[in-house]
Nucleic acid binder design. Structure first.
Lengths: 212, 212, 212, 212
DNA sequence: CATGAATGAGTATTCATTCAT
DNA sequence: CATGAATGAATACTCATTCAT
């Protein structure tokens, strides 16, 4: 489960506010970048700034919370794919298609150098990341055993491809983007097939290469 | 040639400052995002803020100038690849590898929603973009005639893949990034080969799909 | 009543600050012109700049508010004169002497071309102006029925004379100005008397001539 | 003659530039206030800022020069009135009507507190002012001997009335202003007539009251 | 607790003045 | 001398954060 709980249980309404704020922050970060005025986020949440600050001591804390929430969501979907798809290849394909869903919420959190520094070192986030990477390695290994995925790639390679796909290509329209992304995923999947065997440079990337 | 000249000839020293500023802006935008204090850019350029503002009436104008300069550079390199490589495939491969060089300078200019609005509608930039897309279509068509590239892709698909690659994946180290990008490029190229023929959804993207 | 209320009720302390700011702005505009640093006004009000900007989104809004407040004050005094003086002539004379009181606060708000543009089109101000001009027409008409004021003038003429008197003649000392103004008012009043009948050029100016 | 010459003779072209600048400054001060960017004035003059600064060491010097030029012009016209009109009354009436001509150029120079400080103490300006006031006293005395002007006014009173008239009443249209001013002048003249004998408060103002 | 007011430091931008061409 | 480029101090305005209601 991806939702992240703070140490001490919050009162019901406080928890509700917290959720409202995170959700609003995702939206607003996505449309206006990571520097939106806090007031904007508060307004979108329907609470006052004061409340926002009571829940998150400063902007950085909020960014961390949003990032953790995002990672949690991704992890949930990755696990669902692994649990529900019949083969490793199918799971992999489904995972690579997640980008469309996730783009909006994830992109901004991870985009700027600044965001990175903020996130880095956050216990919870590090843990989520580790778990996620483990899952990817697992999927790839599985599919390789099936002989559907080429041998010379690893979960890290898939992670990098996926993170590229999270990007919003801005010279495309809303629908154009969705369409183009599907095609890119298909091209990448073709490049990942066991049959596509022009050997890759170097060695497979695994979770250990993508840790930070 | 990609360098963009203003309408009226600048005095030698003024031109020199203009170049210094654009170059500094690239660096600083890349490392600190599109909201860096103008003063920072001025300092990096070695000129006073006043000079910066004399040359570029506001931040937006500077961003547009940097973007145009970037596109010019890309176009130069794409043309070089087309002129110097023996086959369409080689040209394509070289182009897709440009990302490494270009990432730093390009990324930030095109990243935020805001930047897009700023850039959109700029005559010069639109023109450069159009030219660039034309070149990509040309390369792809050529390689398709050689039977090295699959028939169901177009220059637009390549453009999208390349723009994904321009992204800086921040969970990797400097060298890790370079290495991972090479692998991604290789995977994508494998996915673009004529031999990789699991059919793609929809139809090839051409320059007309990526115009804005 | 001349005081102007914003649409939604302000919290008590906010309203207090608003008043402090307007009052400070009058003083400071009067002594240093309409371009005084906003910081100056804030300091004089005893609040931070931030507060000033929260209350008035920009300098123009502040200028409009001050202008409206000034007009309201004038209107109050004109009405008091009309209500309390026994004859139209006395009311007129009292009104023309208002200049002394009002000069300080009013002068700067209406002085520059720029200020005019700012003020023009403000709903509240337009309305106040209209009401004020109506009152002047009324006083003049009354006094004409009394046969104390010449028949060939109108409220508009009085308005123009008064607005001339609002000016600070700077080649006079503080007291000199007060004294000189009294004499000018007396001369003008003599010129307005029914007995001063060298016919004026054109026709009486009424409120419709001074609307803008 | 009102034109003011600097101590050392200027080369012909330098003198021409000086005149261009003063003339441009009048225009621009009138339309945009005394704080117009120096660059604006330079552009209107058709010279570079550098040249402007060579001719006038700073903004204050320019303001002083413009003020002196204005006063010189007024003086010329007052003298012409005195020389050409058959009676003192006619001269006085003509003088009071000068406002229309002069308003534009004079207004801004004398308007703000700041301008006053700049001008105050300027030798040349003081002298011009003194001369001008002497002329007004003379006209009034002459008309009083003719029994056309009331005995209880002085040149100072006229000066004050005139300076009031120099003001631009901004709630009037261009033509409306001209028309209204004529009417005000007529009313004031009626108030100045020997026949308008409701006694004025205090004593006549003379040039000594308006010196600064 | 929630709210939104107050604060003031941080930045963009302008413009007087100086100085190299 | 004239020009217009360069400089940086001055000022408008924004927004993170704190605190009174």
């Amino acid at each position: 489960m991806g939702t992240v709980e703070p140490a001490t249980r919050l009162r019901a309404d406080a928890q509700r506010n917290r959720d409202l704020i995170i959700s609003a922050a995702k939206t607003v970060f996505a449309s206006r970048g990571p520097d939106v005025p806090m007031e904007e986020i508060a307004k979108e949440s329907g609470v006052g700034v004061g409340t926002l600050y009571r829940r998150f001591p400063d902007r950085d804390a909020l960014i961390r919370a949003v990032a953790a929430d995002n990672l949690g969501q991704i992890l949930d979907k990755v696990r669902a794919a692994m649990a529900e798809e019949p083969t490793g290849w199918d799971a992999l394909a489904r995972i690579m298609r997640l980008s469309t869903d996730l783009r909006l919420s994830v992109a901004l959190t991870a985009s700027s150098e600044r965001s990175l520094e903020i996130i880095r070192g956050d216990e919870k986030i590090t843990e989520l990341r580790r778990t996620l990477m483990g899952a990817l390695d697992e999927v790839v290994t599985l599919a390789q055993r099936e002989k559907t995925v080429r041998q010379d790639v690893g979960g890290g390679d898939v992670a990098v491809l996926c993170s590229l796909l999270l990007q919003k290509v801005r010279s495309l329209s809303e629908e154009g983007l969705e369409f183009a992304t599907e095609r890119c995923v298909a091209i990448m999947l073709d490049g990942l097939r066991a049959s596509a065997s022009n050997p890759l440079p170097g060695r497979p990337l695994t979770k250990n290469d993508v840790k930070h």
